[in-house]
């Protein structure tokens, strides 16, 4: 019988080595052994993704590797997530996410989405090339706390400004996150958004750091 720590290690290593089958097996094993599913997500899958972030920051991994690690993480998440108790999953919040009209690049968006999925958010993914008003409609329909938009190219970035104005007009409390290659701190300030990630690469680093913070919070919650 594998110990809890061994199973967490198998999950983490499976993510780092992008071994989807290993992650699936370890996730199933975690459930069979009666391990808390959220613990397995946070201390197994998310811990592995944190290591991926470190490898990315040190130029050992690049985006192809990170995408495969993300696939491995989802292989585990698909098995574990349905077993997270309602009271743990609820209250994490909802996010509307998509790439802006005119932009068909969605790698960065998908990596940020992964971060929300790991964090237990309910994600409303609008996909790519999304007409501006659809962000507003979906936020109103779902009453999501966060709207995350991505634009890979300068040529589509300006659409974000309009969406932010439309959403803030209707609901000033919504947090707006922007991502994409042309998005800088100046742009975020200028457009009135609340946070940003400047590239798929930056989304990897920042998204994974946020996963790290979620893990820390969970540790504190468990200790208190």
């Amino acid at each position: 019988m594998a110990s809890k720590e061994e199973i967490f290690k198998e999950l983490a290593e499976g993510v780092v080595e992008y071994e989807e089958d290993q992650v699936r097996e370890a996730a199933q094993k975690a459930l069979d052994e009666g391990i808390d599913a959220l613990d397995a997500i946070m201390d197994g899958l998310a811990a592995g993704m944190e290591e991926v972030g470190r490898l990315y920051d040190s130029n050992e991994y690049f985006v192809p590797e990170v995408l495969m690690c993300a696939d491995a993480l989802y292989a585990g998440l698909d098995i574990l997530r349905p077993h997270v108790p309602e009271e743990d999953a609820a209250g994490k919040g909802q996010v509307v996410i998509g790439t802006i009209q005119g932009d068909v690049h969605d790698i960065g968006k998908n990596l940020v989405k992964m971060m929300f999925d790991v964090g237990g958010f309910t994600v409303h993914d609008l996909g790519r090339d999304v007409p501006l008003e659809n962000f507003v409609k979906e936020q109103l329909r779902t009453d999501s706390e966060i709207v995350a938009m991505s634009a890979m190219m300068t040529t589509t970035m300006l659409g974000m400004k309009k969406v932010i104005a439309m959403i803030k007009e209707k609901n000033p409390d919504v947090a707006i996150m922007l991502g994409g290659a042309p998005v800088t701190k100046d742009v975020v300030d200028l457009f009135g958004a609340d946070g940003y990630a400047e590239s798929a690469g930056n989304a990897v680093s920042e998204g994974i750091k946020m996963i790290g913070r979620l893990r820390e919070l969970r540790q504190k919650e468990k200790q208190s």
């Binding site: 005119g102 932009d103 068909v104 040529t155 589509t156 300006l158």
Partner: peptide, 15 residues
């Protein structure tokens, strides 16, 4: 996708 009804600057994309 030409976005030909758009008044904004949107470059065509491949759908």
């Amino acid at each position: 996708s030409l976005y030909d009804q758009s008044e904004d600057i949107l470059y065509p994309t491949v759908p």
